[in-house]
């Protein structure tokens, strides 16, 4: 028993080195004084952080990525929440079809979604870059909202809503004061997952960004093609710290278990 335990522990340790190690390597390399990115580096400097935080291309790309992620999540919520509510609350035919429809964007490979968006939506309606990105990222976010909100509504007892209504509350009042507070942690975790997913997305944005308007992951990828210095390592470290911050926030408020 002990021996088997030991072997399993060793494998687990190696797997975690494989999962986390590369990220630590980047973080360490971001402080190196050498111009060419390498690990182990030499010396210690914050020069690359100064450089990346003053590069306007990265700053504007980061801003756009954050704005699109938040806006797309908000739109997805506006479209998905009422639908999820209707699916749980009312009886009508074709429920499964509607549910599948809302979950379907996740089944289509992002790279294909980007391609068909570009060919049959953006080119067809002559959309600008920003609306195209918004539509595309909203499509990405809808399944997250649908999945999480339907499962938290499934745990909600609609008798409570009936009670409020029979006591004289209007439907709308009941929704905002009775239903919504009960599913808010579900909504919060759906939003967080959707924002992270949208922020990290590459394949969809690769098709939809235009000249001069770039999302952060695409900006990083094109920088990496021509440069190999610790600037990207510094940026990556900043992103990882942000990820860590978000995870701590989730753990403190919702518990990590609720989002995975």
């Amino acid at each position: 028993m002990r021996k088997k335990n030991g072997a399993l522990m060793l494998i687990t340790a190696l797997v975690y080195v494989f999962l986390i190690g590369p990220l630590l390597v980047i973080a360490a390399a971001s402080f190196s004084e050498t111009k060419a990115l390498k690990f182990p580096g030499q010396g210690f400097t914050l020069e690359w952080y100064r450089k990346v935080l003053t590069m306007s291309s990265f700053i504007s790309a980061a801003k756009l990525s954050i704005v699109i992620a938040l806006a797309a999540t908000a739109i997805a919520l506006l479209l998905g929440l009422p639908a999820a509510y209707a699916l749980n609350r009312y009886k009508f035919r074709g429920k499964e079809t509607i549910k599948t429809l809302f979950l379907s964007p996740v089944l289509i490979p992002c790279i294909v979604l980007g391609f068909i968006m570009l060919r049959y939506v953006v080119n067809l309606y002559n959309l600008e870059v920003i609306p195209s990105l918004l539509i595309g990222h909203t499509l990405l976010s809808i399944p997250y909202v649908m999945r999480v909100v339907t499962s938290s509504l499934a745990n909600f007892d609609f008798a409570v809503e009936e009670a409020a209504c029979s006591l004289g509350a209007t439907r709308v009042y009941t929704f905002f004061h009775i239903v919504l507070p009960n599913i808010k942690s579900g909504i919060a975790s759906a939003c967080i997952m959707s924002v992270i997913n949208s922020f990290n997305n590459v394949s969809l944005s690769a098709f939809l960004t235009g000249p001069g308007v770039n999302m952060l992951p695409i900006e990083i990828m094109s920088y990496v093609e021509y440069h190999f210095d610790p600037t990207i390592a510094a940026l990556a470290t900043i992103l990882m710290l942000a990820t860590l911050g978000v995870m701590l926030l989730i753990e403190k408020t919702l518990g990590l278990q609720s989002v995975v």
């Binding site: 590369p22 990220l23 980047i26 992270i196 990290n200 590459v202 990083i220 390592a233 990820t243 753990e251």
Partner: peptide, 21 residues
């Protein structure tokens, strides 16, 4: 589990880039 989730939340660009290094 948190340490397994962390790389999942980290940008795939960052993770692929780390292997380039």
């Amino acid at each position: 589990m948190a340490f397994a989730v962390f790389p999942m939340f980290t940008s795939p660009v960052v993770r692929s880039f780390s292997w380039m290094v």
